[in-house]
Design a binder for these strands. Structure first.
Length: 168
DNA sequence: TAGGCCATCTGGTCCT
DNA sequence: AGGACCAGATGGCCTA
């Protein structure tokens, strides 16, 4: 279930669960379904209404169950999409790490650790640079994730680059 | 075969 | 109410 497309996974899941649950539901219906031919006329007068009510209650419960299940399936699909975005972000983070060959297998945890150490390294470089030439660094990093570029080419403060927030 | 990693499902919680 | 986010559980795949 872990491989293959998300859509086919969802289909696999649905067919799998229908396959196991359906026989049980069928047998349950067989046990409890309202059957008027089993009752005498007298009993029918009293029970047919009650039976019909019970039957409709069962139907509406079944519909509720179906609705819940379809909501759950939709939530699962959203969750899969969300996790795909997360994985893509990890992949992008990995490719932005220098001295890590593109074909290197890196776990998410390793990616985070390397990225963290790389950031520390860059911060150290910035600090050293600041001490050396006493000029403000042209790159100004601000929270949240905004980079304001100040260079000869684009002195305009409006040239703001958003570093994140775009879906993958 | 055990352990690590990953994708997915699921129920709970928070937010809009 | 519905969606986003989160953490735990589960099962599959891969490697030492």
């Amino acid at each position: 279930m872990s491989t293959g497309s998300a859509a086919s996974d969802a289909e696999d899941y649905e067919t799998c669960h229908r396959g196991t649950a359906a026989p049980l539901e069928r047998s349950a219906r067989k046990m409890t379904c309202y059957n008027p031919s089993r009752y005498s006329d007298e009993e029918l007068d009293d029970d047919s209404l009650e039976g019909r009510i019970k039957h409709e209650r069962r139907l509406s419960k079944a519909h509720q169950k179906e609705a819940r299940q379809s909501q759950r399936n939709a939530a699962n699909a959203r969750e899969r999409a969300r996790m795909r975005v997360l994985s893509k972000a990890f992949s992008r983070l990995k490719t932005s790490l220098p001295w890590v060959p593109a074909d290197t297998k890196l776990s998410k945890l390793d990616t985070l650790r390397l990225a963290s150490s790389y950031i520390s390294h860059l911060r150290q470089l910035l600090q050293d640079d600041r001490f050396e030439n006493r000029f403000a660094h042209p790159v100004n990093l601000t929270w949240p994730f905004m980079m304001t570029g100040r260079s000869e080419d684009s002195p305009d403060i409006s040239s703001t680059v958003r570093l994140c927030g775009a879906t993958a």
